[in-house]
Design a protein around this nucleic acid. Sequence first.
DNA 1: GATGAATGAGGGTTCATTCAT
DNA 2: GATGAATGAACCCTCATTCAT
Lengths: 195, 195, 195, 195
Amino acid sequence: MVTAKPSQDRPLRADAQRNRARLLAAAETVFATSGLAVPIEEVAKAAGVGVGTVYRHFPNKEALFEAIVIARTRRLADQTRALVEDGDPHTALFEIVDRVVGEAAVKKDFADALTAAGRDVKSTDEMTEASADMRAALADLLAAGQRVGVVTEDVTIAELFSLLYGLCVAAEHYNWDGMQRARAVTLTFNGLGPR
Amino acid sequence: MVTAKPSQDRPLRADAQRNRARLLAAAETVFATSGLAVPIEEVAKAAGVGVGTVYRHFPNKEALFEAIVIARTRRLADQTRALVEDGDPHTALFEIVDRVVGEAAVKKDFADALTAAGRDVKSTDEMTEASADMRAALADLLAAGQRVGVVTEDVTIAELFSLLYGLCVAAEHYNWDGMQRARAVTLTFNGLGPR
Amino acid sequence: MVTAKPSQDRPLRADAQRNRARLLAAAETVFATSGLAVPIEEVAKAAGVGVGTVYRHFPNKEALFEAIVIARTRRLADQTRALVEDGDPHTALFEIVDRVVGEAAVKKDFADALTAAGRDVKSTDEMTEASADMRAALADLLAAGQRVGVVTEDVTIAELFSLLYGLCVAAEHYNWDGMQRARAVTLTFNGLGPR
Amino acid sequence: MVTAKPSQDRPLRADAQRNRARLLAAAETVFATSGLAVPIEEVAKAAGVGVGTVYRHFPNKEALFEAIVIARTRRLADQTRALVEDGDPHTALFEIVDRVVGEAAVKKDFADALTAAGRDVKSTDEMTEASADMRAALADLLAAGQRVGVVTEDVTIAELFSLLYGLCVAAEHYNWDGMQRARAVTLTFNGLGPR
DNA sequence: GATGAATGAGGGTTCATTCAT
DNA sequence: GATGAATGAACCCTCATTCAT
């Protein structure tokens, strides 16, 4: 956000910056498509760079993966917060959940990400922060939902979180289309609302 | 279940039989504990045999893994059917789901199994059969639930299946204890029942 | 030395034993010829095995190298001790030094070994033991030399050791033939003897 | 010594000159400390320049290393010659040897240099010249020693050279302090003198 | 049948060198 | 001239699978 030294910065960085972004994007796609086990070279190829470049930007495969998760978590948190502020409280919760689940269905790595496939994404400060951020955004959302009465008071963030998680994984696993997803989200929401 | 050559076997066969069983048990544990990426040798060691023996019983790693999934699926199907027949229709659905989810929380490999971590468990005949079996049992369960009115008519087996799946994964991921699990299952069931 | 269980041991081990030996021999040659930087595959090829076999016997390159050093040190210690016992005290010191230096000239790895090329051969117990053994043998030799008067009393083992070391390196570096070596050893011995 | 284009250079040239010097100094230290295997980038960092600059001054890593060896050899030759001229013939030999060995003990790269760690420092013209220079200086020294009788007539330059080499390596390897070094040099000299 | 040694393809990572800025 | 990002060959090591015993 804040580019230090407004004027003559290191000029090279422009390319590097772009490469990093392409790498992240490519990695997201490739990991999503082929799983975490793909050779790094595959990622590099998809990003149109050499393996060395991957390693210049990320110390190792795990770090690359973590960077994706962090980016993704941040994006989700941002979107969530946007919806909390702009959206109709009555539908905000449904919408954001639906959207999150929808994305998860496409980018196969979300669950992979959170699950981190056995290997525990070692809580980097950055990761911890992004997580907390997401959690906070979701908490706001939940509070909003409870305020307008679509969710009963006794539902906790943790519960919401884990149900959301389950939905994401299922969406990904069963390759839900919009219809199926909406239905599942609806069913789940029914459970959260008042009897 | 299907013991090939029902009657007189050479005594050695007994050892082999036992080895296969130990192998399956060991593999289930080891995969659950350390993920699918563990070297086969680890499994062999855990089973107290040499790698060669593993390969005598299963053509390759994937087959071993599949065998576990099949065994597990069969077990679940059996349990489900048992509950359908013996259990109180009002609680049967809840109970079986709770149990399945409970097991999933312990044996980390269930989701791993179904998700099959990227690689698609190629539907063997056996696997297909076990799956169908499980699906049928769950269908019966669902039908029973609908008959007594705890689940609305419009819920499909596919939907039930995927929600169940999501619960399992979440249970595993968040390491739910009995309480948390019951709560999640309850919430989910609320969603399936009549308004 | 002591092969446990004289009769029916694990039969396979014979091959493995042989491979380990071949590996050690090959590695000694290859490292000597091409330096410590040669790819492990080169060593494997020289031993007529696959890389995997190298790694079955030695956890990593360094361990392989260390094994060579240990073997070599033991051999030297043994030879030294033999000379101490069998040899004429008047010539024993000269002879053993000459021989050690002679070997060093051929097997280029001796100095490499001791120097351990920058990386410090982490003192394994085995290594420590072998070293101590060698040192002890040399101490005996020195004592013998002093007893018969070819070396003055004030020469310490450490001094002998380091001069020997220097000679070895020089022999290797300058590729001394027997004549050159004998001359250098003689000159050095002159320095150790009484004026 | 040989500054190309003696007179008017562009001011930038000054920077380049300085960079080359810093590079050489940094490389000497870094190679000495961490061995020849350190990444070039390490050297660059130590010199406070980018890798590109290293390659502007030296075509490749080997050339950089060779430049160090040459510089070092020249320095030794100069010092030697100085001692030959200024020093007391009776102690000159001892002194120069002691000094050379002393330096070798500090700058670990001397032996590394001469041994050239497996890779043979391809005799560049420059290198050859520097070597010859050193050899000549040492020859003068030896001659002086022989003239005053501290060294017997039959000692050849080659012999002196190789003993010196051995001492250097040993000094480096055993990390001799001044005392230990003096003792070793003395012992060695005893050997070179008349009986 | 069981064992575990051997194989070797494959993947992660490093680093000398090049080149756009 | 300097910089440091990019490249990719090469290396260490792992592990699924085979096979001699």
